[in-house]
């Protein structure tokens, strides 16, 4: 096997139907975007799972690190005033 056979990894996103956003379904290897799209069709939509596919080179994705979970996400935990239930509205007003 040559190193050329070591095709890069593509992440696959599928939209199941219009009105719903594309969702990550998995990954695959392909030498270019066009073949990645064809392979994604064969691998991830054999049973009408989707009507639209995105393929994205895995190395184009920048991800947050698990270690950053606290500084990134915990500050919002104590901001209860961002939620509607923080505000007291009399029952007579009904749904608001």
């Amino acid at each position: 096997m040559t190193s050329k056979d070591n095709w890069k990894i593509w992440e696959v996103f599928v939209r199941s139907k219009n009105g719903i956003s594309h969702k990550h379904v998995g990954s695959l290897h392909a030498p270019d975007a066009e073949i990645a799209l064809k392979n994604a069709r064969d691998v991830y939509t054999r049973r009408s799972e989707g009507i639209s596919i995105w393929v994205v080179p895995s190395d184009s994705i920048t991800a947050s690190r698990p270690d950053d979970k606290e500084p990134l996400f915990t500050p919002s935990d104590d901001k209860v005033y961002r939620h509607p239930t923080f505000y007291e509205i009399p029952d007579e007003i009904g749904h608001m």
Partner: peptide
């Protein structure tokens, strides 16, 4: 077919 896929990808690029 792997070789053909590589050649095609290179040509397109």
């Amino acid at each position: 077919i792997r070789e053909a896929a590589n050649a095609y990808a290179e040509k397109q690029a």
